[in-house]
């Protein structure tokens, strides 16, 4: 266990447990935390621009999509993935089934659904449509037309 306040953890895409810090803690103490190999939780209201120059210090970024109607996470994902070319894992946490296609195309590289969606058919919602009408952070597997 590393020395961080209110530690939480999640399992990353390689099935390893990784400790997470909240945004405020990271901003205050990122030089020390950078050496601990932690991930960062970004809430929709956190200013993603503040970590723009620190991305190579962060192993994983977890974007919190728990608020169904708050779309700021999609722009955070876009900025991290497409604009700043963040190479670590961008995981959408507290994700909703019906929003998977939007998260994935915005640059989220993995996701953890909220518990309430357990047993649902994810492919119905994560595969998107046979056609998309615009470029986005992630255009993989889509038949582009824009």
């Amino acid at each position: 266990m590393v020395d961080i306040e209110n530690p939480t953890s999640l399992i990353n895409k390689d099935y390893e447990s990784i400790e997470l810090v909240i945004f405020a803690e990271w901003i205050e103490d990122f030089e020390r935390l950078a050496n601990l190999g932690v991930g960062l939780i970004l809430e929709p209201g956190d200013d993603v621009y503040l970590i723009q120059n620190q991305l190579d210090l962060i192993d994983l970024i977890a974007l919190d999509f728990s608020n169904f109607d708050d779309g700021r996470g999609y722009t955070q994902a876009y900025l991290l993935s497409k604009r700043w070319k963040y190479v670590g894992e961008i995981i959408g946490i507290n994700a909703h089934l019906d929003q998977l296609q939007f998260m994935i195309r915005s640059g989220v590289t993995s996701y953890q659904l909220l518990e309430s969606y357990k047993g649902s058919n994810e492919e119905d919602y994560s595969n998107g449509f046979s056609l998309c009408y615009q470029a986005a952070a992630n255009n993989n597997g889509l038949n582009l037309q824009y």
Partner: peptide, 11 residues
Amino acid sequence: RWFNLHPEFSW
């Protein structure tokens, strides 16, 4: 077409 289910701007 561009705004049709735009992934970043649908919420």
